[in-house]
């Protein structure tokens, strides 16, 4: 076990825990956008930054930083607060239409951005490039149907060539995990239309054997990603072959 302090309050957590988890264990709130328990740390949005005062001085992204013995974490140091505010102010100027971002920014006292508005072609932008959709599709589902396209300010998420993604199974995990509701999905008859991905999928093809069947909740997925429980399932036969228990074990014994 590792001992540290969060805002001067002592906390003890198991080794390998992130600072973010320790902060939350201490009952302190911190905003996050790109973090999800079921996925590898990513450290991109920079909302969760905290100061560590000892053993050395630094500003770190808490979601990706493993705890160390004797760490003194401060979530409200001037640097941490200003880093968070500026990140939200910039995200607000990137996605002025996003209610989620508006609310998160307001929580930090940011109600308007000094950094301008997006160009007309991106006026409706909701995506904050947290990468959760790309990562859940790849790391958790294994379909790897979507990815990042381009780099820098041009970076966006999408399917190869911006056309129907052959490997998309229509699970909807991406849309569910998206913190800003940027991914548009619609069920119409026996079709699921993933507008953002230019992809239409028939309901519901088993990813293991390919058989069509009606979607039903899946217990083990629900534990890991409660939000996609109703969206995705193997067909009953395949599910039997590969139980929830097996999967959970695999997840925790093999390095991500």
């Amino acid at each position: 076990m590792i001992n540290l302090t969060v805002n001067e309050q002592p906390v003890t957590v198991p080794e390998g825990t992130t600072i973010l988890q320790a902060v939350r264990a201490a009952g302190v709130e911190l905003p996050t956008l790109c973090f999800h328990e079921g996925l590898a740390p990513y450290g991109a949005c920079r909302l969760c930054m905290v100061s560590i005062a000892a053993p050395r001085h630094a500003l770190v992204a808490s979601c990706a930083y493993p705890v160390e013995e004797g760490l003194a974490v401060e979530t409200n140091s001037p640097e941490a607060v200003s880093a968070r505010r500026l990140a939200l102010e910039f995200l607000l100027s990137r996605c002025p239409q996003s209610e989620v971002i508006q609310e998160m920014a307001a929580q930090e006292g940011v109600t308007a951005s000094r950094f301008g508005t997006p160009p007309p072609e991106r006026a409706e932008e909701l995506c904050v490039l947290c990468g959760l959709c790309v990562r859940v599709c790849r790391e958790a589902i294994g379909a790897a149907a979507i990815g990042f396209i381009g780099r820098g300010m041009e970076r966006r998420v999408g399917t190869p060539f911006d056309i129907q993604a052959a490997t998309c199974i229509g699970c909807g995990a991406c849309a569910e995990i998206c913190p800003t509701k940027a991914i548009k999905i619609e069920d119409r008859g026996n079709k699921r239309i993933l507008h953002t991905w230019h992809t239409t999928v028939e309901l519901h093809k088993c990813p293991q054997c390919g058989k069509l069947f009606a979607p039903e909740p899946m217990a083990f997925l629900g534990e890991m990603f409660p939000e996609i429980e109703e969206q995705w399932a193997l067909c009953p036969e395949c599910r039997r072959a590969r139980t929830a228990q097996q999967w959970v074990e695999q997840r925790f014994t093999s390095p991500a």
């Binding site: 790849r138 149907a145 990815g147 990042f148 396209i149 381009g150 190869p160 060539f161």
Partner: peptide
């Protein structure tokens, strides 16, 4: 060619496309 590369290398097409545009 990108589709073929993905197939032959056993790499998801999305990854090939990401790299190609990066």
């Amino acid at each position: 060619e990108l589709r073929r590369a993905a197939e032959e290398l056993g790499v998801p097409l999305s990854q090939v496309y990401s790299a190609a545009t990066f």
